[in-house]
């Protein structure tokens, strides 16, 4: 196990079949935080679009 992998650079995709053994926040925090942030952005886009659909009422 490499030092970088131990500190957040491990890949959720690569480790998908062994996550039950390897999962920890510390190992996957870059994947998890970025993935979560991207979903928040998706929610933000949809929220903004719904808000925009109310303009002019």
């Amino acid at each position: 196990m490499s030092a970088l992998e131990e500190n957040g650079h491990a890949s959720l995709v690569r480790d998908a079949l062994r996550l039950h053994r390897t999962f920890s926040w510390r190992r996957y925090w870059i994947d998890l935080l970025g993935f979560l942030a991207a979903w928040l952005l998706v929610s933000g886009f949809i929220g903004f679009y719904c808000w925009m659909a109310q303009w002019g009422k």
Binding site: R14, D31, G34, F35, A38, V42, I46
Partner: peptide, 27 residues
């Protein structure tokens, strides 16, 4: 009307996965 956006925005839901896949290609 505004619902026409989904012709492209259906890919909105695949976009977060690019974050996970990019290092796979790079490595």
């Amino acid at each position: 009307g505004l619902a026409g956006i989904w012709y492209q925005w259906m890919w909105l839901f695949t976009t977060p996965f690019y974050w996970l896949l990019a290092p796979v290609y790079r490595r």
